[in-house]
């Protein structure tokens, strides 16, 4: 099933219809006319796009243009920011997530999030992974054990930590901490992963390891990644969305398949940004 996002005149539509090679363009999130404001000050407006199932969508653009604000509306983490107001519609699995009575906690178990700075809890590695499971009422030792093991294997951390699951997660290196955080999101078996510059606080080698891992996760998970690293976006993403500040308000300028967007951008701002002339 192919669906074309409503074309609005605020952004340029790249080539979406063909679909990227790895995934069918079935919308997982459908976002229409989204706007975010903090204390009546609009920081992002008029965003409409579809996030396709199983694909990696990269959000690119200079800092301060609302990419992270956009990302945090998808799991309604924006609720936690005092004075934040989100308008428009976000449809996820056929339900409008911005509705007042929408079950936010179950949304957050289906939509995992990885932050810029690795933020494992100050607990042991095992407890970090157990906590979200226990919260969901999973108490059985064997179930916990198998879920933890498979999550750690999935992020390639198992061999490194299997002998020291009971040491503090804070004793791991930065890259390991970040992979642990991804594993912590994965134990809940989400369908979507939101990543807010997951590699930018890491050294180049760890960053490469995490990036490889993200690539492995593609297909099984829908991934939305904010990144400042254009080369990384190009390497990883199937789709890309380019944000830019216009009159101090973040706007979506262009959205489409990654390769065409980088190679033959439709919009002059995109062209300037991806070629390194601006931003």
């Amino acid at each position: 099933m192919k669906q074309t996002p409503k074309i609005s005149n605020t952004y340029t539509l790249g080539s979406v219809e063909q679909g990227a090679e790895c995934c069918e363009p079935i919308p997982h999130f459908s976002i229409r006319d989204l706007a975010v404001s903090y204390n009546q000050k609009t920081v992002l407006s008029n965003v409409s796009l579809d996030v396709y199932k199983g694909c990696i969508t990269a959000l690119i653009g200079p800092s301060g243009c609302g990419k992270s604000s956009f990302l945090s509306t998808l799991n309604r983490l924006s609720d936690m920011v005092p004075g934040a107001k989100v308008t428009g519609t976000i449809e996820f699995e056929g339900q409008s997530t911005l509705a007042n009575n929408y079950d936010v906690e179950s949304l957050r178990t289906k939509v995992g999030m990885i932050f810029q700075n690795p933020n494992p809890f100050p607990l042991t590695i095992r407890k970090n992974l157990e906590l979200p499971l226990r919260e969901r009422g999973i108490k059985k030792k064997s179930v916990l054990e198998s879920k933890i093991t498979s999550a750690l294997k999935e992020v390639g951390l198992w061999d490194e930590v299997k002998d020291r699951l009971n040491v503090s997660a804070l004793s791991l290196s930065g890259g390991q901490q970040q992979r642990l955080c991804i594993a912590r999101a994965l134990v809940l078996e989400p369908s979507v992963l939101l990543m807010d510059e997951p590699c930018s606080a890491l050294d180049p080698i760890s960053s490469g390891v995490v990036e490889d891992m993200i690539r492995r996760l593609a297909g099984r998970y829908t991934i939305i990644i904010v990144t400042h690293n254009l080369a990384q976006a190009r390497r990883l993403a199937n789709y890309a969305a380019f944000f830019w500040m216009k009159e101090r308000v973040g706007k979506l300028i262009e959205f489409g398949q990654c390769q065409p967007l980088f190679e033959s951008p439709q919009h002059s701002l995109t062209a300037a940004y991806v070629s390194g002339e601006r931003g």
């Binding site: 079950d103 906690e105 919260e135 969901r136 999973i138």
Partner: peptide, 16 residues
């Protein structure tokens, strides 16, 4: 995720 697990999550959720 199986249906029963989904239900489990729903229930514990309401409790939490």
């Amino acid at each position: 995720m199986t249906q029963s697990a989904g239900l489990l999550i729903q229930l514990s959720h309401i409790k939490k």
